[in-house]
């Protein structure tokens, strides 16, 4: 059933201002990654990189190599080839996705290197990257038409096929014929797991789960992914998990009202967060009356989205809707 058709020709896909102007992909597939995606890990010899590469391999992801400057030519502890540069790695392995665990001071540069080397999707897991670095990296990747996910994000998983990131694999339920499957978009890592777990325990499979990350400047945003899920025939409903800070959720609400016909359930974290304080994530702050949870909830409700009152009722709200 066309499962081998990938998101090819990535340079046709433009991300920016919430528009995804690529050709509509009318095949029944998950979004962003699937079993044919081949992945390299930048920072594969680091502690986090090595651990999570092992986890991804265990899940069945097609990990094809790693990058670690100065260690090219060797083999990683997983038996994967290690290269000095991303360009070498892509040339040798044909990888199309890069998963980055490089330390924050060098991570934005690593993302640009991955894009320059020809990866079509860059998953930036690293936390604590300077905002100006991200502004520059995002512009660089946008100009090349390369999709960026993150930074400060758990990554993306298409259950049963491909896990690129740090989420625990076992909590996910792969989509099967005849069952409903859910697409999940979230600014928070652990809160995504929470939503996934609630779906799985209620017998709802997931088509793809995407963590977009908690930084103020990031790659793929709610609107981009809402459009992908709307166009993805395998996705029956969408869960979006937002938090305080910024106006991305408000933009998503406007987008949902105009373009999304699939049922959407939302949860916004930070109802009790005090204004002016940065709540862990660099982007999670209420300032000048902007970015409050209540304004986001109001905008989403107005757009016809079912908003869960508590993080524990995301799954139930969805079951009721289906």
């Amino acid at each position: 059933m066309g499962l081998d058709i990938r998101l090819h020709q990535p340079h046709n896909l433009r991300v920016g201002e919430g528009t995804f102007q690529g050709d509509r992909l009318d095949v029944d597939m998950s979004i962003l990654v699937d079993r044919d995606s081949s992945i390299i890990c930048q920072g594969i010899t680091g502690k986090a990189g090595a651990f999570h590469t092992a986890q991804c391999l265990e899940y069945g992801t097609r990990m094809v190599g790693g990058v670690s400057p100065g260690k090219g030519g060797s083999q990683s502890e997983h038996g994967l080839p290690v290269f000095n540069t991303c360009h070498d790695a892509v040339a040798a392995t044909g990888a199309d996705v890069s998963m980055i665990f490089v330390p924050a001071p060098f991570a934005a540069d690593a993302a640009m290197e991955a894009g320059d080397a020809g990866c079509s999707l860059v998953v930036l897991v690293t936390e604590g990257i300077p905002t100006l670095d991200m502004a520059r990296a995002r512009k660089f990747l946008d100009d090349k038409g390369i999709l960026l996910l993150g930074p400060n994000c758990p990554g993306v998983i298409t259950p049963g096929q491909c896990k690129v990131g740090i989420m625990p694999g076992y909590i996910h339920k792969p989509a099967e014929k005849g069952t409903k499957s859910i697409g999940i978009i979230s600014r928070s890592g652990t809160l995504t797991y929470e939503a996934v777990w609630q779906c799985t325990t209620r017998g709802l499979a997931q088509s793809t789960c995407v963590g977009i990350g908690g930084d103020p400047i990031k790659g793929l945003n709610f609107t981009d992914l809402l459009q992908m899920f709307q166009d993805d025939e395998e996705t029956d409903a969408i869960i979006m998990i937002g938090e305080i800070g910024g106006t991305d959720e408000e933009a998503a609400a406007t987008y949902i009202e105009r373009h999304v016909t699939k049922p959407v359930v939302a949860f916004i974290a930070g109802m009790t967060a005090p204004p002016g304080k940065r709540m862990g994530h660099a982007g999670a702050i209420i300032s000048g009356g902007e970015g409050t949870a209540s304004s986001k909830v109001a905008a989403l409700k107005e757009a016809g989205v079912s908003v869960a009152e508590s993080p524990a009722t995301i799954g139930d709200t969805l079951t009721k809707l289906l």
Binding site: S186, R187, S188, G189, T190, L191, T192, E194, G214, I241, E243, I244, F267, A269, G270, M271, T272, A273, M279, G280, H281, A284, S310, P311, A312
Partner: peptide, 13 residues
């Protein structure tokens, strides 16, 4: 996780 921490606060409330 920052999101889960915020959500936990909300849930307690």
């Amino acid at each position: 996780g920052a999101g889960l921490a915020m959500a936990t606060m909300d849930l307690i409330k």
